[in-house]
Design a protein around this nucleic acid. Structure first.
Lengths: 339, 339
DNA sequence: CCCGTCCCGCAAACCGGTTTAGTGAGCGCC
DNA sequence: GGCGCTCACTAAACCGGTTTGCGGGACGGG
């Protein structure tokens, strides 16, 4: 196959210098309209597009963002947050022809991946998701000189710009609704507490119960997984005084919980109300349909990418706050059973 | 922040030329052992790593692969094939420090994404997944001079190297097992037939029934979605002679189908046997646990990346065949009900 | 002692863009 | 008519690596 054309080929073909081709392409002043058209026509005819690596080298910009996911692969597949989030990032990036480098790794190797990303200068900045307590990454990216944006609450961002979408209101609304329905023993199956969002969900549950003057029901770890959700549910339902409602950290655990309840002959919602989080497409089709919460993951991705853009442009970017997650009541909740 | 060190800084620091630094780094002969150590020490001390863009420019290699997903975001999130697949690709790429550019797009814009990928020279090659009938991509990548590997059966690859993992045996085994259990009316809820794998699954079901001398049961589209699976199941169960077993195109549709059966008061597996595909982590925790099929998506990703590596190295790569998917019977199947 | 080899290492060119620092032509103005 | 300006364009340097081609010193053999 023929060698790809370079800027020199276009210049020759249009009878101008390489400089002019570059100027014409980038809409810089100093090129006569007529010449510019001739250049662009030549480029089109030869099918020339500037080489990204070459452009990246002279501009000192890679033209790509990085996203490092350090969950176990099993868990990543579980929720559809990431695909939607990535789709949103793509919307923001796609216009400029930039791209997203996705690195899936294990928690142990996480730091080295960021280090390599920074050392390589393969990305211009990174999006930090799934923040943990004492998360090393804000400091790490700062030390590495790697621009970053935190995808989460501003309190977690450690000085970085954040793009937040609050999941708390959905939990507050869910717990309040359950209380309205007469529930007094409302349990929580929490996600891994090292994650700030998992912890935040638990706090929302706990504090809302407190505000309502209700005792905190039992809490069990569900690990955001089907297995964890099933095990926790089994344990909760075998208590002397089982809860009449369970609020899960995510839909996967909740769906598994729904199956366990059914297996144990506990009718939902007659004897147990169930609430998930994520609005997984499956939740509308479980039996009964699972109450959940919806967050605009796609919009989140788009906003995060735009924020990182502005950070890279050197702007002082304020924390971005997106509309919060919304509680979606469905048939999996109902009035508390009579004692 | 200080400017990042370049190869010239390392050369100066070690008292050698840039050439020597490059040679030392790339293990090329012609550098004395002692000198090499001094160079590497200098590099380490300055914290220098070669810049990817610069390297990409001189080598004419981007050091990255591309993966374009053209499903609707909702559908991508649904199965955990991609996260596991990407994790596998990462394993193969990570060793060399290469990366994966993921582009999530819509079917309409798919071709232009490949065109840009090729024009930009931002990736060295692409992995083609989700092949369709009359898929334009093998010809497109060939025309664009963009090296590619087909993730799927060799018959689909149109001359490209393929890395296949056969899902057929799992379907054959499932249908045979159902027949053994006495089922005679075995339905199929198929995925979108423009996808070759969806079509292949349907053919496996159909041909196995034929081999067994059984009439093909009803087929309905399920679109690989929860909604489609639920709708198809509802329709199947309201037939005058409803099937006693349903084989779904994937777990998502099957899980939704399970809920519908339950909602309609059709006990599983007593009156209806159900089989999915993908071995989604949830399937072990549905009620009853869903029979499914397991394929090593991670290994698939790793093998695909390695194959693309070898294609890029100019080797003649034969079609790679991985161990086929395996049927995983669980409690969602049982003996056919007595008429 | 001289010459051919081998081993090391360097200068310079190159990859394909962008950008800086001019150059020359044309024009208005006094 | 000469000066200064603007406009359109270009030559050359630069980004940070890799690679080619060559030179100098040590060593061994004749």
């Amino acid at each position: 196959m023929a060698r790809r054309p370079t800027i020199a080929d276009v210049a020759r073909h249009a009878g101008v210098s390489r400089t002019s081709v570059s100027f014409a392409l980038n809409d810089r002043p100093g090129i006569a309209e007529e010449t510019k058209e001739r250049i662009l026509a030549a480029a089109a005819e030869l099918g020339w597009t500037p080489s990204r690596p070459a452009r990246a080298l002279s501009l000192g910009k890679a033209g790509a963002f990085g996203l490092v996911l350090a969950r176990d692969p099993d868990q990543i597949g579980a929720d559809l947050f990431f695909p939607a989030f990535i789709a949103g990032v793509e919307v923001a990036l796609g216009e400029r022809g930039d791209g997203l480098m996705v690195h899936l790794t294990t928690p142990e190797r996480e730091e080295s991946v960021y280090e390599r990303l920074a050392a390589d200068r393969r990305v211009d900045g990174v999006l930090l998701t799934d923040l943990r307590h004492e998360d090393p990454r804000p400091a790490l990216t700062h030390r590495l000189g790697l621009p970053a944006v935190v995808v989460g609450q501003s309190e977690w961002s450690d000085g970085l710009t954040s793009v937040g979408l609050d999941d708390r209101p959905a939990y507050v609304a869910a717990v309040r609704r359950l209380a309205e329905l007469g529930h007094r023993r409302i349990a929580h199956v929490e996600g891994p507490q090292e994650f700030r969002h998992a912890h935040r969900r638990r706090s929302a549950w706990e504090e809302t119960l407190g505000d309502l003057g209700l005792p905190p029901g039992p809490v069990l770890p569900g690990g955001f997984t089907a297995e964890g959700g099933a095990r926790a549910t089994r344990e909760l339902l075998s208590l002397a005084e089982p809860p009449t409602a369970i609020v899960y950290g995510n839909d996967l655990a909740a769906t598994a919980g729904l199956s366990v309840a059914q297996e144990l002959g506990v009718p939902v919602p007659e004897r147990l109300s169930v609430v998930g989080y994520d609005d997984n497409p499956l939740t509308r089709y479980t039996h009964p349909p699972l109450s959940s919460a919806r967050a605009d993951a796609r919009g989140w991705g788009e906003a995060a990418a735009q924020a990182l853009d502005r950070v890279l442009a050197g702007e002082e970017v304020a924390h971005v706050v997106l509309p919060p997650a919304e509680f979606i009541p469905r048939a999996s909740i109902g009035p508390a059973p009579r004692p």
